[in-house]
């Protein structure tokens, strides 16, 4: 079965949700999907659908490179499990820790530096790089 068919419901939902720049291409047994979801809720809905279509997401046949729309100045919620999020001087775990953001704290996006590091600013004025995985656009 073609992967476009297997994930048809996901692609259809992404279209319905108005995912920006939605593109999908099948290559070497993997369906690559990219785009920008309008909200964290849309993003979560798409991932839930992925887990439903492919139990445990174990087939390794979908690369869902969807990010969430967030422009500079957007509010981000710190979504660590419970711990503080380190704010570093450079976009790397090698970077010196220049500040911390608490769990559930709201910070401001300065720039999306790369796939995994975003530059943020806290309400206290601490500015630096944090791991994007723990930041959810509001």
């Amino acid at each position: 079965m073609a992967l476009q068919d297997k994930y048809a419901e996901l692609l259809q939902t992404a279209t319905t949700l108005g995912v920006g720049n939605l593109a999908s291409t099948e290559q070497a047994g993997v369906l690559h999907v990219s785009g920008t979801a309008n909200s964290t809720a849309d993003y979560d809905a798409l991932w839930a659908l992925y887990a439903k279509i492919d139990p445990n997401m174990a087939s390794g046949d979908l690369m869902m490179n969807i990010d969430i729309k967030a422009d500079a100045g957007a509010q981000l919620k710190v979504t660590t499990d419970s711990s503080n999020l380190n704010i570093r001087s450079t976009p790397s775990t090698e970077g010196e820790i220049v500040g911390k953001a608490a769990h559930d704290e709201i910070v401001t996006l300065v720039e999306k530096t790369d796939d995994s590091w975003w530059k943020i600013k806290t309400a206290d004025g601490e500015e630096g790089y944090a791991f994007a995985q723990y930041l959810s656009p509001l």
Binding site: Y50, G60, M63, M64, N65, D67, A132, Q133
Partner: peptide, 14 residues
């Protein structure tokens, strides 16, 4: 899975 997709890294999670 979300982290791997954000990094655009293919995976084998079997």
């Amino acid at each position: 899975m979300q982290m791997l997709a954000a990094a655009k890294v293919l995976s084998d999670v079997s």
